[in-house]
Structure formats: structure tokens, C-alpha cells
Simulated scan of single mutants.
Amino acid sequence: MSDVLQPIIVVRKKKHGGGHHGGAWKVAYADFVTAMMAFFMVMWLVATMPQEQLGGIADYFKNPSAVAGTASSMAAGSNGPGGAGDVPIKMFDHIRNPPGAGPAQGADEVAQAARDLADRERLEALQRALEKAVASSQALAPFKDQLLIDITPEGLRIQIVDTHNRPMFDLGSPNLKDYTTQILVELATYFNQVENRIAISGHTDNTPYTGVSGLSNWELSTQRANAARRALVTGGLQDGKLSRVVGLASSVPFDKTDEGNPINRRISIVVLNNAAERSAAEVNDAVAAVGPQAGAPLPGDARPGASADIGPSADALPAR
């Protein structure tokens, strides 16, 4: 019997799927992220650079040659405006030293910013100490609902407000209640812990003052602010730490929806920050340089009974 050759059949399985592509996508993604970072860096530089430098750079790239051009500012080199520069462009000079400011002025601004930051941290520490005292001190805890403490653009503000059952002053009078004096004497010890000066302002509600003929809420609020000053001095506050004492009557109500609310009758004490002191000093210098003119009212004369009020009051500014 002869052997019969059988055909050999090879079955190959068809592979499905894309298989492994390696890490090429990672390289592409990294390039994309790098490009986006470069894009945002360019946008930031464009947004912060002065216009004259932008014009110079734009014209520089329009004509990057050694031939004199017509750029709005000189290129950083010896080939004239619009030509190729031979030294790096100082792109960050305007950040360290603003236009028109020399190196010394830029350094002074950095130092001033550091002092302002330290000043704010000092006031925030004082705020925490006062809030802790209000919560635990036998002298202040009973009045925690009448002591309002916050940070304003002028500094740390402490407001002592009236309530329906516990006024700070005798009715229609600048005479302090005994417990109000106790609060102010206690606060004085905290104000002496910082070098900042303070400003005191008195406030009334909109009920007309019916005291001595010719007097109004302006006089009453000023007298109450001065009474608070005397109590603080009695508590040991150094007289040189006082910046201003003013009366604002009912012009800056705490409750604007109900100007007859007892909470509008209050004493506001602001521990002034460095920026507020500088602003007041600049105004004082400007007033001194101009001098009083004939017929012109002196600061504070616009409000009958108010003492000189230099600079904006923290009570007229929103809290932060």
C-alpha cells in the first residue's frame, strides 16, 4: 500500500487591537505642557511691561538687523533703534524698579512693603489677644456682645456699642457709665503693647440732642469721644499714642436701615496701621504747605463741634 501525502494546514490566529505604542505620547504631552507654560509666561510679560518697552520689542522683531530702524525706544545695543541689540533686554527692570524710580527707590519700596506686612501681622496678633480677653477676662467677658473687633483699611478697629438695656453713657450726656470706664481702662493695657497710635471717634443715633441750647449731636459725639480718651489715659495709655479724637454725630450709622437703633450710639477706637499714618502725614504736609486761605474752612470746621479730622475715618470705610 502506497503512502498518501497529506497536506499540512497551518492555522494563524488574527491579532486584534492596536498593540503597545510605547511612550511617544508622553513626549508629545510634555512638549504641549512646556509650550503652554511658555505661552502664559509671554502673556504675563505682555500684561506687566510698560508700553514703551512693548513698542521697542515689537519694532525690534519687525527689523532684527544691524540697520537703523524707527523703534519707539532705543534697542539695548549700539546699532540704533530697530537694529539688532548687543546686550540682553532688561525685561524685568520695571518690576524691581518701576519707571521713573531709581534703584534706591525700588529698594525703599520693598523695605516699606516688608514693614507694612510686619505691621499687619502685629495688628492681627493684637486682634487675637483682644478676642481671647473678651472671651475669658472677668472685666471684658460680660460685655462681649457690645465689643466689636475687626480689621479695616486703617487698622484694627474696636467698637463699643450701646444696647437697649446697657447704654455706655448717661442719657443725653458725655458722662461714662462705670462699666464703660472699666472696659476702656482694660483696653488701654492692650493698646500699649503695640507702637501704633490710635484714633477715637464718637457716634450718636439720629435722635436730636436736646441738651444745652445751641448744641447738637456733633458736640455730644465729640464730648463722648473725648471722655473715652480720658478713660484710656486713666488706664495708662500714653498721651503721645493719640492721633485724633473726633465726633461724627449720626453721619456714619452702624445700622443704616434703622438710624435710631441704639447700636448706632458707639465709641470707635482704631489702632492705626502704617499706611493710615503715612496718609495722614501726607495730608498734614499738604495743608501746611498751602496754608489757610481767607474764607477757607480749616479741617473739621465743616462739622460743628468736631475736632480736626485729617484723613478718612475708618468708620466710613468697609471692614475687610
Rank of each mutant, 00 (worst) to 15 (best):
V11Q: 15
V33C: 07
V42M: 07
V42H: 03
T48R: 10
F61Y: 14
V67G: 14
A68D: 13
A71N: 14
S73P: 02
G77I: 00
I89S: 05
R96F: 05
P99D: 04
G100I: 00
A104R: 08
A114Y: 02
L117N: 04
R122T: 13
L123S: 03
Q127P: 00
R128H: 09
Q138V: 10
F143D: 03
I149D: 02
D150R: 15
L156R: 00
R157C: 09
R157I: 04
I158T: 12
D162C: 05
T163N: 09
H164V: 15
F169R: 03
L171F: 15
L171V: 15
N175P: 02
N192A: 13
E195D: 15
G202K: 01
T204L: 12
P208Y: 11
P208T: 13
L215V: 12
S216E: 11
A228V: 08
R230V: 13
L232C: 04
T234N: 13
G247V: 01
S251H: 00
P253Y: 01
K256P: 00
K256W: 01
N261L: 05
P262L: 06
I267P: 00
I267R: 01
I269K: 02
A276N: 01
D285H: 15
V287H: 12
A316R: 10
L317E: 12
A319I: 06
